[in-house]
Amino acid sequence: MADPTETDAEDVNELIAFRIAEQDFCFNIMSVREIRGWTPATIIPHAPSYVRGVINLRGAVVPIVDLAARLGLEVPEPTARNVIIITQIDGPIVGLLVDAVSDILSASAKEVQPTPDVAANGSEFLSGIITREDKMIRLLNLAAILPETVVAAA
């Protein structure tokens, strides 16, 4: 599967940056369809714990992935202040539950450093690291965080 966060053909990529549990993450903005507030989701039976359920996005049934849970971070119960980033990667539309959207960055492929080899939980979902104003922003590998059922469906 082609990774939309690594479109090296373009020199500079626009990235959307957001926060989860006091950590900064980003991915290619071309995958973002829209950003909306949190609405309660309908539970899907037998779904992985990081799948919050499905919501109604103007008639489409869209699953919500709790990124904090997916990345092994602390998972508070979502409130109205939480944000869902609706993404579309190779077909399926998936909502990502995050704490807040913080910025939109431009970064060239050269600026992306490889992820340091640590045994940290969740590092398999990162495809690199970008530095901005002393902050370390983790570049998410979107394809890797999708639930298996979605990957199978795509």
Binding site: P45, H46, V54, V61, P63, G91, P92, P147, V150
Partner: peptide, 9 residues
């Protein structure tokens, strides 16, 4: 459910 999520038993 299939197009965005997949089959659910």
């Amino acid at each position: 459910l299939e197009e965005n999520y997949g089959q659910v038993p």
